[in-house]
Write a protein that binds this DNA or RNA. Structure first.
Lengths: 124, 124
DNA sequence: AATGTGTTATAGTATATCTAGCACAAAAGA
DNA sequence: TCTTTTGTGCTAGATATACTATAACACATT
């Protein structure tokens, strides 16, 4: 699994790390039980500071995507709190759809986008 | 149209202003041609600094939701660049759906959420 | 004993956010 | 005309966040 960082992005580095890892899980590039690189190793290969990686890992742990262990390092371990996840998604969708609505994006447009993206993710 | 600010939120004040105004447009509480309060007036009623309101207005202008005029103030004027809006939405959806996918949120769950939210917005 | 984990502490720099005050020109109202 | 209000531009300071840099710690593995 390759992780690419855009230093010119306005997104914080640790957020970019989070997103890449989460998308890696969704696309099945890494699975439950797989280990991520150590904080020092990932920091080296990406070219950023150890603490920035550590911050990303800690948030991922807090959000229930990985577990951190002194022996094994960072391990993919999804804590499925679907109700909580749905609430968060709804909050985000509310403002995203408001923006789209103003720009005349239809309900069908959104459904199409969702389907298109979902096709790249988990094949269940 | 009422605007409420949560000072305990982790969201920046100017972002909260943006979102409230955009949702106001989506819910048809304010329409094309309507004017928003002046920066000083809104700042007073909300209890924040003038420049914070000014920042929100300027971003809204840049994103094509309002026009700023010295005579009329801030006027709702949607610049419909649907293609651009779709691109932005897709970028956001990509990471949002990845998170949901990891938490076992199904395609149908998302469609239901989208419909539920859309019902509160523009009746076309 | 050496190495590799995550973890914590401290410090420094840079950027973002919010507030405050001032000045100016254009527009509106009395 | 006079006054007020408007958006705009500018500077400045306070606070928080982001990122980097070192260093050290506790634990497990080799």
């Amino acid at each position: 699994m390759y992780i690419e960082i855009d230093f010119n992005s306005d997104e914080a580095l640790y957020v970019q790390l989070q997103n890449q890892i989460i998308m890696g899980i969704a696309m099945d590039l890494i699975r439950e039980g797989d280990t991520l690189p150590s904080v020092r190793q990932l920091a080296d290969t990406v070219g950023i500071n150890m603490h920035t990686v550590n911050k990303a890992y800690n948030i991922l742990k807090q959000e229930g995507f990985i577990q951190l262990d002194r022996r094994r390092g960072a391990v993919i371990a999804i804590d499925i709190d679907k109700a909580e996840a749905l609430l968060k998604m709804k909050r985000q969708l509310k403002i995203m759809l408001a923006r789209g609505c103003c720009k005349r994006i239809s309900r069908q447009d959104v459904h199409a986008l969702v389907d298109e993206i979902f096709d790249e993710y988990r094949k269940e």
